[in-house]
Amino acid sequence: MSAPPHSTDKTLPEWDDLSVLVAEVEAAIWDEHFDDAARLLEVNIAALWFGLRPARMAGVLEILLENLPSPPLLLIAAYRILKASRAERAESRKSLSDIDSEDPQQMFILAMFRMHDLRMEGRVVEALAQAEIIEELLGKMRFVLDPQGVWRLQASLEIGISAMLAGDFTKALTIFTQVQLHPATPKYSYLTRAVLVKSALI
């Protein structure tokens, strides 16, 4: 049987901490160590959201939900949000009623998807308006649910991109500058690199 994806293939564009994390999840799934995979996902969901393509992320979550007797609620919510259509995410009260509106992590994921959906539809001003909701949720997650600030880093990248597309380059540059001042974390260096690239375009 061939090796699981990413486990030994070091021809990836960037064999950094993110690639290693993706490889660990893929290896755990391959070896059917579903508890280990779920634990990695739950703790590092922000990073893996970036490291796995959406289709693969949905596939991994589906495997875990099918094979774990009691999958973590965050992973259940992430899967349902990921699989929902844009229209369903826009009307979350009706179609995603099982998402816990009191859980800032679940609502944060939903808000991030909404921002992305609106950008894809060309509604960049509305996408940027999601920033206020995201900032409020980040405030609730600070220290306890986002001790390393990775959600904030990822949100800043998405908000900055939305600001650029909406023509608010001052806001975009301000956000990107704040990210660059964030204490360096090797595990999430890919986010800092992405911000540096975007900043250079302004």
Score class of each variant (00 low, 15 high):
Arg86Ala: 13
Tyr79Arg: 09
Lys140Pro: 04
Gln106Met: 07
Leu40Glu: 00
Pro71Gly: 00
Arg86Leu: 09
Leu18Ser: 10
Leu21Ser: 11
Arg193Leu: 12
Phe108Leu: 14
Gln180Phe: 02
Ile76Asp: 00
Arg152Tyr: 06
Phe50Gly: 01
Thr174Pro: 05
Ala129Glu: 14
Tyr79Thr: 01
Trp30Gly: 04
Ile133Thr: 15
Met1Leu: 14
Thr170Leu: 13
Ala84Cys: 03
Phe50Ala: 04
Arg56Gly: 00
Gly160Gln: 02
Leu145Asp: 15
Pro54Thr: 08
Arg86Trp: 10
Ala155Ile: 07
Asp146Trp: 07
Met164Phe: 11
Leu52Thr: 01
Pro104Tyr: 02
Leu110Gly: 01
Leu145Gln: 14
Leu128Phe: 12
Arg89Tyr: 02
Asp100Met: 04
Asn44Glu: 10
Phe176Asn: 03
Asp16Arg: 07
Gly167Trp: 09
Ser156Ala: 14
Ile29Gln: 01
Thr174Gly: 12
Lys94Asp: 12
Glu66Thr: 05
Val195Phe: 02
Asp36Trp: 05
Pro54Met: 04
Glu66His: 03
Ala111Arg: 11
Ala78Gly: 04
Leu165Gln: 14
Thr177Gly: 11
Leu18Glu: 06
Leu40His: 03
Met141Lys: 06
Ala3His: 13
Leu118His: 05
Thr8Gly: 15
Gly51Arg: 01
Arg119Tyr: 02
Asp16Tyr: 06
Met141Ser: 10
Ser85Trp: 05
Ala163Ile: 04
Asp146Cys: 11
Glu32Phe: 05
Gln106Trp: 04
Ile202Tyr: 12
Trp151Met: 13
Ala38Val: 00
Val179Gln: 07
Arg56His: 07
Pro147Ala: 09
Ala27Thr: 15
Leu65Tyr: 00
Asp100Asn: 12
Leu153Gln: 15
Ser199Arg: 12
Met141Asp: 11
Val25Ala: 06
Leu61Glu: 00
Met57Lys: 08
Ala38Pro: 01
Phe143Asn: 14
Val43Tyr: 03
